[in-house]
Design a protein around this nucleic acid. Structure first.
Lengths: 340, 340
DNA sequence: AACAGTAATGCAAATGTTTTCATAAAATTG
DNA sequence: CAATTTTATGAAAACATTTGCATTACTGTT
């Protein structure tokens, strides 16, 4: 016990205590089968007695992997990326990776800075959200030959391997559900689209479908709200109080949809009787809320898991060919939309 | 450009390119004022030309800090810790720390394993949630003299410095609000309390207050639901469909409260007319929902920020005396509870 | 009993930095 | 302008590991 308190318990201390050389101690961790069982036991005891913990930094210096993967998200604040993060972490962890996380608040300069810092830590791989990144960031990753992956969006022309869903289709799917239900007075609310190709793709998809159906959305029915329940609620309430009211509201994501529903309820309107609301995402809780939210399911957990596996694989087994994985999305018809 | 592609751009490569020694290159990063401006410029150019990125692992080997802080949470899946994580990250980042994150799923053995792994990475500090940790974990941290902090709970007897709120008081506050409103038929729903002193403290507090008011809660009105909206909704629906129905429901956290409200609405009951619901936490969105949730505010952002600052400080300036910071909680009266 | 073959261990170099100390160059002083 | 101080740079040691190669200690064979 008293031994354990010492600072700087290094491989030498262990070697001394076990009366072997440091090489042998090192081997006991990395190639235990090469040791005489008795020696191994002796080292084990010393390790435990001294409370020795290997120094990954020293290992990293030998070109050995650092055992870290960097995940850079726009924000951790909201429900959006939580599921993804958890699934991603769970999926890289069995391969021995710890996860460095940082958020950039939708600021691509900041994203670059974070990526750089992660590279200083010699992360074995980097995962980014979406395809909107600064040229600098892309170059940084390719020059350093750091395995990287883009999560959340599928894009057949992505510069990085990607695992995600097709946001354009998601937008289309949402829009066509409303159109099929006979809605023609449709308002839309989306997150800001700068540096956010998810929002952009969804909006484009929705617009294309509406246009194809001969529906035009007046400018004042296209809301852009920051990613927050309160902002969404505020903005939708303003919309609902204006003279002409849409029969349906297409929301760029479930958080915005939630805000919209709360806005409607607060205004005394019934969803879906007075207004239909459709979301995109199918976040945790969307199915349970009242009314249960009709939305487009993006399989966050699946995306996170597969992304983690792909990146781990790219790190461990040399960089194979570049893969782009499109995860299926699906309309989840629930109770927040009704036919006209 | 072609130079940049080379692997292994190290300090030697830069030194060569700039025609100086590696010491000078090193100094240009760590003590730039000691260089002749002209030399510094030359090195700068070389760094840029080669795309050199410093190797933090090598620095760490000099006893220089690794520049990482480990944050270990029970889960990242839910809204609970998202705000905390983001605030914590934002707060340690300006001090130059990157954040390693892992979740343990309320399994304290796993927590220990994660802490160990973080120590292999030579994190400069560790942040844990709450005070329930295995003896092993506590010993590990103290033996390694790793600055550590416990977040989320305030406990005047905590083994680690802590920044958080007093869950016992939170439970009491919630209970007395109901009592003051004349409720006597009160049901409670809490998350599992093993390895989760937050839930335990809140429940104890609530019970004490109810007992003091001469209210006894029948066993079948004490629900224990896993931390999920869907489970909470399911369990509360079962409760509401039983013969005798409580007039109020005290929920261990806002997610459970959300589930409870959805359950009530789905069952056709009105909140608060038919049943009052109070939460604990005041998560993002609780104020905006319909009906706006009456709850006990725990200042997650504030806690995260202060915790980050405290830990950074403990790392940078030698370990000062141990501080325990109690962040104020407050009843937020909104629309989900009504007087009887 | 000598020999080869293998198993177990140790020695020392290498990894990419920082830093102390030494030295060279430049600036200041009388 | 020589002596002294200051400034700028370099050489080498240190940090905690891993690993290739060398060495020693066993096993079994004839």
């Amino acid at each position: 016990m008293s031994d354990k308190d010492k600072r700087n318990v290094d491989i030498f201390a262990v070697a001394n205590a076990a009366k072997v050389s440091i090489s042998t101690v090192s081997r006991s961790f990395n190639h235990p089968e090469k040791l005489k069982p008795e020696t191994r036991k002796r080292i084990d005891r010393a390790v435990r007695k001294l409370g020795y913990i290997r120094n990954r930094a020293a290992q990293t210096m030998h070109g050995i992997r650092s055992g870290t993967i960097g995940l850079i998200v726009p924000t951790m604040d909201h429900a959006i990326f939580s599921e993804l993060m958890e699934a991603f972490a769970r999926s890289v962890e069995p391969h021995g990776f710890s996860m460095l996380v940082a958020s950039h608040g939708y600021d691509l300069e900041k994203e670059y800075a974070v990526a750089r810092k992660f590279l200083e830590h010699r992360v074995d791989g980097v995962a980014l959200i979406g395809q909107d990144h600064s040229e600098e960031t892309y170059q940084l990753l390719s020059q350093n030959q750091t395995p990287a992956i883009s999560i959340w969006n599928y894009d057949k022309n992505s510069r990085l391997p990607c695992v995600g869903a097709d946001n354009l289709s998601a937008g289309k799917l949402a829009a066509s559900h409303l159109v099929e239900h006979g809605h023609r007075d449709i308002a839309m609310i989306f997150a800001p689209r700068t540096g956010n190709d998810r929002a952009k793709g969804r909006m484009d998809g929705a617009r294309q479908t509406l246009q194809a159906a001969g529906i035009s959305v007046p400018q004042e029915w296209i809301l852009q709200s920051p990613y927050s329940l309160s902002a969404a609620k505020r903005d939708v309430m303003a919309l609902l109080q204006s003279t002409r009211r849409p029969t349906a509201l297409l929301c760029g994501n479930d958080v915005l949809a939630l805000g919209a529903i709360y806005a409607a309820q607060t205004t005394g309107l019934s969803v879906p009787d007075d207004i239909s609301v459709i979301g995109i995402g199918d976040f945790k809780g969307s199915a349970e809320m009242y009314p249960a939210l009709t939305t487009i399911r993006l399989p966050a957990q699946r995306i996170g898991r597969i992304a983690g596996e792909q990146l781990s694989d790219a790190i461990i087994n040399a960089p194979s060919e570049m893969r782009r994985i499109n995860c299926d999305i699906a309309l989840r018809v629930r109770d927040s939309c009704r036919p006209l």
